[in-house]
Computed example of a mutant assay.
Amino acid sequence: MSGASGFDATGEELCCAAFVRLDGALRVLAARAGLSDRYDVVAEGMQHLMASLGGQELDGKVLGAAFGENWGLDARYAPELPGADFFREGSRLVFIALVAARPDRQLTPEQGVGKAVDAAAAWPSDVRIGSFTRLVDFELACQKEAAERLRSAGLPALRELAEARAEEYRRVAEALPPLTGGHAGALPS
């Protein structure tokens, strides 16, 4: 990330924060689909990417492993499982974030932040988060709050906020009814 302009760094920070929020639900969905082992590698790479924004040196092997596991992960999530569209858009956010982190970036972190909105808009049911009944409205409020928090208090405060909001996403995913009929979930490895 060294050499990124202030705007790009801000975009990367907000993109990673969007992932941290969505990670609350993505972990639950991955576990239901039998994809936890693969998803954990993806999440580790994204956590590493966020740590690099705070000054930790980027490790290409960690990011490469995350990219490799994320590639096609959404295709392994059975389309009939609840949250499939959310999972697909969340995987696209990861793809954009990892590509945008490369020196020869062809995508922007802002596109990843947009994918967080797409994922939330794809949520299959109404939610109960404070006064919000649509996950997309909650995500848009989170994005505004995240930008303000980053501007006023910096990256550590942004990460703390994102982790708190991830709990809301986790609760929403846990409330999603499971698919009935004994479907096993993921496609074969």
Rank of each mutant, 00 (worst) to 15 (best):
127 V>Q: 14
68 G>M: 02
164 A>F: 06
39 Y>S: 12
39 Y>K: 14
109 P>Q: 02
38 R>W: 10
159 R>P: 01
118 D>T: 11
89 E>G: 04
3 G>E: 09
1 M>D: 14
41 V>K: 12
2 S>G: 15
167 E>H: 08
146 A>D: 14
30 A>V: 09
50 M>R: 02
128 R>Y: 00
27 R>C: 11
91 S>D: 10
99 V>P: 03
139 E>R: 02
153 A>S: 10
75 A>W: 14
3 G>S: 04
69 E>V: 06
64 G>V: 08
140 L>Y: 11
4 A>Q: 15
33 A>W: 07
136 V>L: 05
186 A>P: 12
4 A>G: 13
127 V>S: 09
7 F>H: 15
12 E>H: 01
127 V>Y: 10
39 Y>N: 12
69 E>H: 06
10 T>D: 03
130 G>T: 03
54 G>A: 15
68 G>T: 08
56 Q>A: 14
111 Q>K: 11
69 E>R: 06
105 R>C: 11
148 E>A: 11
57 E>A: 15
145 E>C: 12
72 G>R: 09
57 E>G: 13
6 G>A: 13
32 R>Y: 00
138 F>E: 05
99 V>Q: 08
151 R>Y: 01
88 R>L: 10
56 Q>E: 12
19 F>R: 00
96 I>G: 04
118 D>E: 09
8 D>F: 01
72 G>F: 04
172 V>C: 14
147 A>T: 00
65 A>Q: 11
26 L>Q: 04
131 S>L: 08
25 A>L: 03
43 A>H: 08
45 G>C: 09
189 S>N: 10
9 A>R: 07
90 G>Q: 06
84 A>T: 10
89 E>K: 15
32 R>W: 02
66 A>M: 03
42 V>D: 06
128 R>M: 13
97 A>D: 02
117 V>M: 07
150 L>R: 05
152 S>A: 12
23 D>T: 09
181 G>W: 03
159 R>H: 01
178 P>M: 02
183 H>D: 14
109 P>Y: 05
99 V>D: 09
139 E>Y: 00
16 C>F: 00
3 G>F: 01
44 E>H: 12
183 H>W: 11
145 E>A: 11
154 G>Y: 00
45 G>K: 10
85 D>N: 14
62 V>L: 00
160 E>P: 10
82 P>G: 09
92 R>P: 13
79 P>N: 12
127 V>D: 04
180 T>N: 09
18 A>T: 02
21 R>L: 09
88 R>M: 12
123 W>F: 03
165 R>F: 01
85 D>M: 13
57 E>Y: 07
23 D>P: 04
31 A>H: 08
56 Q>P: 14
165 R>E: 07
42 V>T: 01
93 L>I: 06
30 A>W: 00
36 S>C: 14
101 A>D: 04
130 G>K: 06
25 A>Q: 05
8 D>R: 10
9 A>Q: 11
73 L>Y: 01
182 G>R: 12
2 S>F: 15
163 E>Q: 10
76 R>F: 12
171 R>C: 08
2 S>A: 15
114 G>T: 10
71 W>V: 12
10 T>R: 07
10 T>N: 00
109 P>H: 04
157 A>G: 06
45 G>F: 01
55 G>Q: 07
155 L>A: 11
183 H>N: 12
122 A>V: 07
15 C>Q: 05
86 F>L: 08
148 E>T: 05
78 A>G: 08
100 A>L: 14
100 A>F: 02
164 A>P: 06
31 A>M: 15
165 R>I: 01
96 I>K: 03
168 E>S: 15
